[in-house]
Simulated assay, not measured.
Amino acid sequence: MTPPTEVVDVEELVEFYRDPPVGVRANMIFSADGAAAFGGRAGPLSCPLDQQLLKALRGLADVVLVGAGTARAENYRPVRLSDAQREWRAARGLADVPRIAVVSMTGNLPQSLFDPSAPAPILVTSAQAVARHHLSGERWQLLIAGDDTVAVSDAVQQLKSQGLQRILCEGGPTLLDSLVDEGLVDELCVTIAPRLAGGQPVGTRIQARLASPTALRLRHVVQHQDYLFLKYAR
């Protein structure tokens, strides 16, 4: 068996991710026993290189898509990029920084997301939620997708129609489940942490509607210390 490629820093690692698909690229971390978080947060499973990869993947995207629960638990803020990332984006005609789009049925977004010097977040919600919670477009860009619940397929299509073609989904598992159910995940980036986390309830996951598992192709396996970085394509 060929051993995985070893990397020492994020400059080496990000070269394996320079080709984001037009569509949805999901990035997740899991413990060795399959937990997506510990104590409600992904941070305890992560390592410095995984955190650096997260920032690097954002620099390659047009928009970061995340569930409201994850945004609150991880205290999300507007995307900040290095000068080198901004130069890379400018050379390719991309916006200075990617937008952040949060899927929420209540509009309960962390205050840390709102910064006058950064682009306003996009609130992805349903028509019923807008009426129930009197949501408007004053604090965010309002994207209404679906009537009773958020229709993720409609949301993805609307983001693409706004020129946000490369969508980076950072979870949580409930949002990822919805994208998988609709056949919308084009690429899955998975970090396997050398941790045992036990049972960790995350989100409100329901049984998938898939008739059979969706087949993926393994594009790479990269190792840093005891962490594995995998990329799958549909």
Rank of each mutant, 00 (worst) to 15 (best):
M1Q: 13
P4H: 08
T5W: 06
V8S: 15
E11I: 14
E11L: 15
F16A: 10
R18N: 13
P20M: 09
V24R: 04
R25G: 08
R25N: 09
S31E: 06
G34A: 12
A35S: 11
A36T: 14
G39E: 03
R41I: 02
A42T: 07
S46Y: 03
Q52E: 14
Q52N: 09
R58T: 07
G59H: 08
D62H: 08
V64W: 03
L65G: 08
L65H: 03
G67K: 05
G67T: 03
G67R: 05
G69R: 11
A71K: 04
R72I: 01
R72C: 03
A73W: 01
E74G: 06
V79A: 12
A84Y: 02
Q85M: 09
R89A: 02
G93F: 06
G93N: 06
A95L: 04
A101L: 01
V102R: 04
V102F: 00
V103S: 00
S104L: 01
S112T: 13
L113Y: 00
F114L: 14
A118H: 05
T125Y: 01
S126H: 04
A127Q: 12
Q128N: 14
V130R: 10
R132K: 15
R132M: 14
L135M: 11
S136C: 14
E138P: 02
Q141P: 00
L143E: 07
G146I: 01
T149C: 07
V150T: 10
A151E: 10
V152R: 06
S153I: 01
C169N: 14
P173E: 12
P173Q: 12
T174H: 04
S178D: 11
D181S: 11
L184W: 00
L188H: 08
L196S: 04
G198I: 07
G203D: 05
R205D: 00
I206L: 01
R209F: 07
A211K: 12
S212R: 15
T214G: 08
R219L: 14
H220G: 11
H220A: 11
H220F: 06
V222C: 10
L228K: 12
F229S: 03
A233M: 13
